[in-house]
Computed example of a mutant assay.
Amino acid sequence: MKTAKIWAWIAAALGTIYFFLPLIGTFEFSLRARRGTYSFDAYRTVLFDPQFQSTFLFSVVMALLTIVMGVLIVTPTVFWVRLKLPGLRPWIEFVTLLPLVIPPIVLVFGYIRLYNTSSLLPLTGSIFGTNILLVLGYTTLALPYMYRAVDTGLRTIDVRTLTEAAQMLGAGWLTILGLLILPNVLVAVLSGAFITFAIVIGEYVLAALLDRPAFGPYMVWMGSNRAYEPAALAVIAFSVTWGCMGLIQLATRLAPHTRAKS
């Protein structure tokens, strides 16, 4: 047992070095913007750059819209499949896995082909329509993670019993979904939401080919035109991603309290 613990600690140490050593190197390089000394000049330049602020705000808004759309699509679908159509569950799972197999560049070229200005639904002909198309693309990319998060949450509750009890009390489907099912899977929904947020913040292909001012294309542009600022951007993006992961862990720890209140 002691030998097994030693090897486990060695594996954990090697994994930590593998993941964090490049990050430490990137952070150290980002502090070299001022010759001869360490400084946060690169971070100051990035954070006070109007283009950074506008692109980051745009991606945050797109992420929030994607989360809302994902919840509205996935939660009723998973609920209905588990309640009425359990035989379709393998097929639904297969469909939700497709975004992991189909490259985003194929997806966005399909969107441009189907929704260009010469089609019946010319979404790419306006900024508003292109933004809708971008949110739809982000929702598709985040679908595997949102679906599995909500599906895992619904497995922890007795959906059929809760639904029948609510119907006996006169509740409608919207009431059941909004006031009964969603609060009981709120932690799972938040987990999927934070992962979705991290995906949208760092996504490049959809935003670049749809010509939208998102954070991902800004990072690529900065990487090709500056030296130290791209390293600072990488650390900032990494911090945002890990912040989302930390919020997932916090929501998971608060899960017992949430279920107790519900």
Rank of each mutant, 00 (worst) to 15 (best):
P50A: 05
G87F: 09
N225D: 03
G172P: 09
S118N: 11
M146Y: 09
V150A: 13
M222L: 15
L174C: 03
I112G: 01
Y111P: 00
V159H: 07
C244S: 13
I73R: 01
F194S: 00
R148Q: 13
P217T: 05
F19Q: 08
L250C: 00
K5M: 11
L143Y: 10
Y18A: 15
R259K: 12
A214P: 12
L97S: 10
M62D: 01
V68L: 15
Y115W: 08
I181H: 03
L31E: 08
W242Y: 14
R148D: 07
I181R: 05
L85F: 12
L121T: 09
M1P: 13
R259M: 12
P144L: 00
S126D: 02
V95H: 00
F40L: 15
T163F: 04
D151M: 10
R32C: 03
A33K: 14
S191D: 02
F20N: 02
N116C: 05
A12P: 01
R89N: 14
Y18N: 08
N131G: 03
I67R: 06
L107N: 02
L114N: 08
E28D: 12
G125N: 07
R212P: 09
L210I: 07
Q53C: 07
S54C: 00
A231E: 05
I176Y: 02
T258S: 10
L120P: 00
L210A: 09
G246S: 09
G110L: 05
